[in-house]
């Protein structure tokens, strides 16, 4: 089944089975492997991408449901000249990552959070990222990164 969608600003299309999950379309068909598969049960958030600007767990959406929609993955965050997105830069400056596996999902969830709540409290950041797990338990610096990106720290 043919799916036409916009990924990181470019029109793309792929031929997929209806049961293909969005995360597999992104990773296997479009070769954008920054988006990770973690728990595969919509708990961990490693697969978080933006669908029409809002964070979504791409392991819990069929690729065919993305027909005509705009997807942004971690590869679409930096500027064309390679300048990191402010959230990526904040993670870098605040050492918001250890092994890095959760990081793409964290960055996508955190940017979606700030879009809805540009000046969150620390508690709101923790609550807002409750769907993203860091197995290194590096939450302290992740929260610091998001607060820094929001201009609050």
């Amino acid at each position: 089944m043919k799916v036409d969608l916009t990924v990181n600003g470019s029109a793309m299309s792929a031929d997929v089975e209806p049961r293909t999950l969005l995360v597999h379309l992104i990773r296997d068909d479009l070769d954008l492997t920054g988006t990770n598969v973690g728990c595969d049960t919509s708990s961990c958030g490693a697969c978080t991408v933006h669908v029409n600007g809002e964070s979504v767990k791409s392991c819990t959406m069929f690729a065919v449901q993305a027909q005509g929609l705009e997807i942004t993955t971690i590869e679409g965050m930096a500027a064309d000249d390679g300048t990191l997105h402010p959230m990526q830069e904040a993670f870098r400056q605040c050492h918001g990552l250890q092994c890095g596996y959760c990081t793409p999902g964290m960055v996508m969830a955190a940017t979606s959070l700030l879009k809805q709540n540009p000046s969150p409290s620390e508690a709101e950041v923790r609550e807002g990222l409750e769907g993203n797990l860091c197995r290194c338990t590096g939450y302290h610096n992740i929260v610091k990164s998001v607060m820094s990106a929001a201009g609050g720290a």
Binding site: T48, M61, A109, G128, E130, G131, N132
Partner: peptide, 9 residues
Amino acid sequence: VGDPSVRHR
């Protein structure tokens, strides 16, 4: 319900 990403869908 769930978390923010779940609540978006």
